[in-house]
């Protein structure tokens, strides 16, 4: 394929179509890990903020970004890691938060716990554990519909 020079808006669009490997209902752009897109000379530089230090998805996220952009015709590509300022759940997009809830994961709240059950909207909730199936989640339970659910931790 001939090299194409995507505009920055086109790069954001490609990345907006790359799902989070652990929570495929949101994109990497929704997750807020893409911190910058720009050209240095002919090289496209994408700046990525890792979520949790030890999250195994970090390596997969970088591979997925690389694969998606190369499939779109980008040849000269550099991924740059941004540690500071550190990734925060404040960077989740409003759309991402809504998609999480629709998927059954309560979005993060500054109060430190879910606002309501993602299934029945009850506010009668109990914490089961501060950790869950991935580093970014905790386990909660609804006291009304009795379903356990994931809560996306606020960090």
């Amino acid at each position: 394929m001939a090299e194409v020079r995507l505009s920055e808006a086109e790069v954001w669009e490609v990345l907006g179509g790359v799902p989070d490997p652990e929570i495929p209902v949101i994109s990497l752009v929704d997750l807020g890990v893409i911190r910058g897109v720009g050209y240095e000379g002919d090289t496209l530089v994408v700046t990525v903020a890792p979520t949790y230090s030890g999250c195994p998805a970090t390596a997969v996220i970088n591979m997925d970004i690389d694969a998606a952009l190369r499939a779109a015709g980008v040849e000269q590509l550099e991924l740059r890691r941004q540690l500071a300022p550190p990734w925060t759940t404040d960077w989740l997009s409003a759309e991402g938060r809504a998609k999480l809830e629709a998927y059954g994961i309560a979005p993060p709240q500054p109060a430190g716990g879910p606002e309501r059950c993602p299934r029945c909207a009850s506010k009668n909730l109990q914490k089961i554990s501060q950790f869950g199936s991935t580093p970014c989640k905790a386990q909660w339970r609804c006291g009304d519909c009795l379903e356990p659910f994931d809560y996306f931790k606020c960090i």
């Binding site: 949790y52 230090s53 030890g54 999250c55 195994p56 554990s129 501060q130 950790f131 869950g132 580093p135």
Partner: peptide, 20 residues
Amino acid sequence: LEEDIALANIALDLIGQAQL
């Protein structure tokens, strides 16, 4: 089970920090 998952997650955070 919950403790098992929590301990594994803490270990993972620490090993991630060790990599940095």
